[in-house]
Nucleic acid binder design. Structure first.
Lengths: 200, 200
DNA sequence: CGCGACGTTGATTTGCCTCAACGATTGTGG
DNA sequence: CCACAATCGTTGAGGCAAATCAACGTCGCG
């Protein structure tokens, strides 16, 4: 579905870095991919919808969040170039999602829908392996995150966040980072003031 | 590696429920599995070791935990019959683990090591799919857990835990559940007292 | 039997939230 | 392109959730 004109170099190098594929196999992959431009503040997914895609960010910045019992936005993930996004829970069960996925900048994505993903696995089984490896990596990352959330102080989590994702703070507002860390914007501000007093 | 004498019915029905396999395929699977009896309080994995297995619990109860900065045990998972355990992060990267995996009861497990898992994928690629599906499910579960940990009160998380895993509290000590919930044993005790006052 | 592990309860402290107010920055409609 | 509104980050006062520390009764086990 991808026109020859599209530049697939970012996703190609991502995929090839996971697992080597032949030109023929990549051609099949491309034929099952779709491309979309997503304007800032527009949604890839809204609560209640079924997540029909797994998307790779070619360009831009996108957040995944939910609305908690008090009506507050809680950010689960930021994603930028070369990250995959989607709600796997909704995607695999084809049930309605609890999440919102919204562009923070004008973005460009490649995405694959459920039936095309299955087609891909049927035609090139090696992709089953690639997605297994990707899912494993995602699981490792989120397990780490859970451990940090349970055991680390907010100070530590904030500093870890800065170290691990140095590009993000340059691109998203501070209160969004607070939301990601699970604290109020006021509290993050106070932490920053404290850290600044003691030299970053 | 599994002797004919071993009863593989539990793991067989787990696997078949994920994805249908032929007798021939199951035979290959069995040949790459190993079996072990794990005494209460003995370790399947200790911090600093490389996790060489993914294990299916045939019988028993096992906990996965880490030791936090203050030297306290924090339980990440309980696992009982028909659950898989291991430290994927360590397993896939073959790097040393931060986790302990320890039997809470005398247990019996089937396990597969790294090279046998690769052999399995090579001989029966369909297992690649099964493990992808398993990993996806694990990812969904832990994402849900992260959301709860961030957004729910301890009361709610405790009640959710009781509802979702009613067998666990009968088998593990209360302070271990407190550890799993990320609170002190004293605090969980106070929550229970409060809930009891207002009729469970 | 006696010791250690467990669960409970109370007093105090601390981390983080809530609410409120205030400049600074951003963005938008006229 | 300006003016005004909205959003954002900061700061302070007060409150609540959960940790810490300590003491005590109970139970299981060597």
């Amino acid at each position: 579905m991808i026109d020859e004109a599209f530049d697939t170099s970012t996703i190609d190098s991502y995929v090839q870095h996971c697992l080597p594929f032949s030109d023929e196999e990549m051609k099949i992959f491309h034929s099952l991919l779709q491309y979309k431009i997503v304007k800032k503040k527009s949604f890839l997914l809204q609560q209640g919808e079924v997540c029909e895609f797994e998307a790779f960010i070619k360009k831009g910045c996108i957040k995944t969040y939910y609305i908690d019992d008090k009506g507050l936005e809680v950010i689960l993930y930021f994603a930028i170039e070369n990250w995959w996004i989607g709600d796997i829970e909704s995607f695999v069960s084809q049930a309605s999602s609890a999440l919102f996925i919204e562009a923070l900048e004008d973005s460009e994505i490649f995405y694959i829908n459920y039936s095309n993903k299955e087609k891909l696995f049927k035609e090139v089984p090696k992709f089953e392996r690639m997605f297994r490896l990707m899912t494993q990596r995602a699981l490792s990352v989120i397990q780490h995150r859970l451990i940090d959330t349970i055991s680390k102080t907010t100070d530590e989590r904030y500093l870890n966040f800065l170290k691990r994702y140095p590009q993000i703070p340059q691109r998203v507002a501070q209160h969004q980072i607070a939301s990601y860390l699970g604290v109020t914007p006021e509290f993050l501000s106070k932490i920053r003031a404290k850290l600044a007093k003691h030299d970053i």
